[in-house]
Write a protein that binds this DNA or RNA. Structure first.
Lengths: 210, 210
DNA sequence: TAGATTGTTAATCGATTAACAATC
DNA sequence: TAGATTGTTAATCGATTAACAATC
């Protein structure tokens, strides 16, 4: 029977961390690993790892541990990372072009298949084989290539209108790097990467220590 | 009397979002704002805004609302963002050079005063007036300029050793973009920006909808 | 005063952690 | 069988939300 409670987003993010760590130990030749060993370097209590997995099912062997290779495959399947996922980058500025080449995405099977910009000087160029297209063609491109996910890295003041355009083009999910809260219809998945917020929290904690 | 409970990190991050939003409405000439209006577009219940502020004190006027300009100044002071904070970028690759120019940092008074790389071809160059120095000189630079915060964007397999170097140079806080969990001594502040984790959580949620 | 909105308490909700029976 | 480690329940902890008295 398929388990179906509400799985915390934090659990999903930890699963990706587990996945990365497992890939690393697999490369070192480790075949079997315990919840204790897998969480030791991740600064997580072993029970949390087991709890996280238990949302999805049973994947270990009592008294033994987890088969590394199997667990990698399992987690990939559970998260939907077992097949390539095509995404586009919207906004081919500094950050956008950096993300096109970010190895952390390709590692988890995410493939950037195009970038879009409004600047005519950028349109037509390509970065690492990824073409930069005119943003006015984005709807056609999304439909034709059946894209569901966009990485949004346009300037803050353009973010909402570009997001509206993406929704119109039937994008289902947005990874937003603009420091703005986007207003989106129900059913659209959004994740915000707030880099300033992260560094702000660091600064506050430092202030507290002083 | 100074309030001192344990303030959730999420509260701090929301404070930065409030700050950004307040700056925007201030530019539009708004003088007074209620908790309802401030949270309307941020998708947050008004009570949470008030609760967040209450960790720090009382800043509104009952029956009236909050003075926008005062509140901006207050939040900046509370978070330690009222004076310029000097930081360095370590790793002047695509992501590093993008972050050097990221406007979201300068908006909250964070000033990048130098970048560091191991690649001799990059050393000596400069981006938007920010010099790229040889990483072997980093310790001297940190000491001389009294830097407390580093933005770490070296490749994953170099991240731990570079972090060790930063600790040796007496850095107190690290904003880490490498998809690795760093092992750091007690008392060092760390924030991890896990871009792959964020997009992974999106992919999972999309899979659930289907 | 009447209306509005804060600040805060208490209730709710959800996530983490501890403990242990199950079982390899 | 003895030792180890899982999977899961229950306890704990912390954060969010609702409700309302205080007060402008």
């Amino acid at each position: 029977m398929v388990k179906k409670q509400n799985i915390p987003t934090e659990t999903i993010k930890r699963m990706i961390a587990y996945l990365r760590y497992l890939e690393r130990v697999k490369d070192k030749g480790v075949k079997i690993i315990s919840s204790r060993d897998i969480t030791l370097l991740l600064n997580i209590p072993p029970a949390q790892f087991r709890k996280d997995l238990s949302f999805f099912g049973e994947f270990g062997k009592r008294g033994v541990g987890y088969n590394v290779e199997n667990l990698i495959d399992t987690i990939k399947k559970l998260l939907g990372l077992n097949k390539k996922i095509k995404v586009i980058v919207v906004g081919a500025g500094r950050l956008g072009t950096a993300l096109i080449q970010y190895p952390g995405f390709s590692e988890i099977n995410i493939e950037i298949i195009g970038a879009f910009d409004i600047n005519p000087q950028k349109v037509g160029q390509s970065i690492k084989g990824i073409n930069i297209y005119n943003i006015k063609d984005i709807k056609k491109f999304i439909t034709k290539n059946n894209i569901k996910i966009a990485i949004l890295c346009v300037p803050a003041d353009a973010a909402q209108s570009v997001a509206d355009l993406l929704i119109e083009a039937k994008i289902k999910s947005i990874l937003n790097f603009a420091p703005v809260v986007l207003i989106l219809p129900e059913g659209i998945n959004i994740a915000n990467v707030d880099m300033a917020g992260e560094i702000g929290s660091i600064i506050y904690r430092m202030k507290e220590q002083a």
